[in-house]
Simulated scan of single mutants.
Amino acid sequence: MTDAPLILLAAGGTGGHLFPAEALGVVLMKRGLRVRLVTDSRAMRYSGLFSADMIDMVPSETVRGRTPWALGRTGLVLGAGTAKALALMLRLKPAAVVGFGGYPTLPPLFAARALRIPTLIHDSNAVMGRANRLLSKGVTAIATSLPGVLDRDPALAAKTTTTGTPMRPAILAAAAVPFAPPAAEGPLRLLVVGGSQGARVMADIVPGAIEQLDPALLRRMVLTQQVRDEDMARVRAVYDRLELSCELAPFFSDLPARLAASQLVVSRSGAGTVAELGAIGRPSILVPLPGALDQDQFANAGVLADAGGAIRIAQGDFTPQRLAAEIAALAADPHKLGAMAQAARTVGRLDAAERLADMVTRVARI
């Protein structure tokens, strides 16, 4: 393996960027290639394919403001990161560098371009992220999860291939579990997740919605909810008073299996979440994160909603009353839940990692 070509995978340190990189890495390694991850310090929190000796960290900085001081700081940090990435490229001599979005991808992709190393970026969102937009004109090829993302730019569209979002083995295993609609008097398994930026609103709204449900439905409810430590006491107090069957935790390491076991999901609509809901095929109520410049989560949720696999609710309309009404209506119509699960499946691409690996080997000419 020491003589096998090396592919460097560059990703921001969040699950939405790291998980597709991990999924591609699994396939590339099965094909006999070596992989390493270039990222920031946040990636060390994630366990998976990349052990510590497979990770290289480079300095990076998000654009946090438009003042001369903020822009200057960002420029200095990214410059230092690019210098370190140049040294890394010269030492490792990768056959290609693949970026998955986030500002930590900028230094390694800038360095690869300067050294004329083949480059490819993958974007999971319905609207291309800002870091990938900065890189898009200079890379060798572009992969997107969804069709039509770059149709308005013919020059970029000409080097773009729709591959889908690469799925980790745990998601592929979960996708093999068929959807089972709730029986008339059987349990309704509700999963509520929010991610680092979304769990607070779920803690604010979901308990109040559950309180409004009919007692007969409450007795059937089996709830699993991601709750931040600082919100745990108040959320648990409501569910204890209702004598609700529930499991609450700040983080679920086995989330793919929990998605597969659920009959309805309430969630934010990050690119990774939408892709996993499509791959596994589960009905959902999606609440896009507001305030994003590109409204990417709103567009992501629209992909599932337009297919019939999800209900999209803007955060301004996400009230306990609205959520309770949606849950009650879906619980009363198991056939609709089944149809939504089937519709969500039409969005998923289970072969995305293989398709992206094919692109990588073409770009790297190996």
Rank of each mutant, 00 (worst) to 15 (best):
A279G: 08
G302Y: 07
R282G: 03
G270D: 11
L259V: 15
D296E: 15
L293R: 14
A261V: 01
S262Y: 12
L286E: 01
L277V: 02
V265C: 11
P290D: 01
L293M: 15
F298L: 13
V303I: 14
G272M: 14
L286R: 00
I280A: 06
R282V: 03
V303S: 03
G291H: 04
I280K: 08
R268I: 11
V287W: 05
L286G: 01
P290W: 00
A292W: 00
D294Y: 04
G272S: 14
R282W: 03
L289G: 07
N300F: 06
I280Y: 05
I280E: 05
L264G: 07
Q297L: 02
R268D: 11
A299P: 04
R282M: 04
R258D: 12
G281Y: 06
L304H: 09
L289N: 07
G278Y: 03
V265P: 11
D296P: 06
V303Q: 10
P290N: 06
G291N: 09
L293H: 10
Q295V: 00
S267C: 14
S267A: 15
V265G: 10
A275P: 02
S284P: 00
A271Q: 05
G291A: 09
D294Q: 07
S269R: 07
G270V: 07
G272A: 14
L293F: 10
G278T: 07
V303A: 12
Q263K: 13
S269P: 12
G281S: 03
R282I: 04
P283M: 01
N300L: 05
A261W: 10
P288H: 04
R282S: 02
R258E: 13
Q295N: 15
A292Q: 15
A260C: 06
P290E: 02
L304N: 09
S262V: 11
Q263V: 14
R268Y: 13
L259C: 12
S262P: 13
A260V: 02
A292R: 11
I285Y: 00
A271I: 06
L286I: 00
V265R: 10
A271E: 09
D294T: 10
A271N: 05
A271T: 04
P283N: 01
Q263D: 08
E276A: 01
P288L: 06
A257D: 15
V303K: 14
A275R: 00
A292K: 10
A301N: 08
E276Y: 03
S284Y: 00
G272R: 08
G291Y: 01
I280D: 04
P283G: 01
A279H: 06
G272L: 15
G302S: 12
N300S: 09
E276G: 05
N300Q: 07
G270M: 08
V265M: 11
L304Y: 10
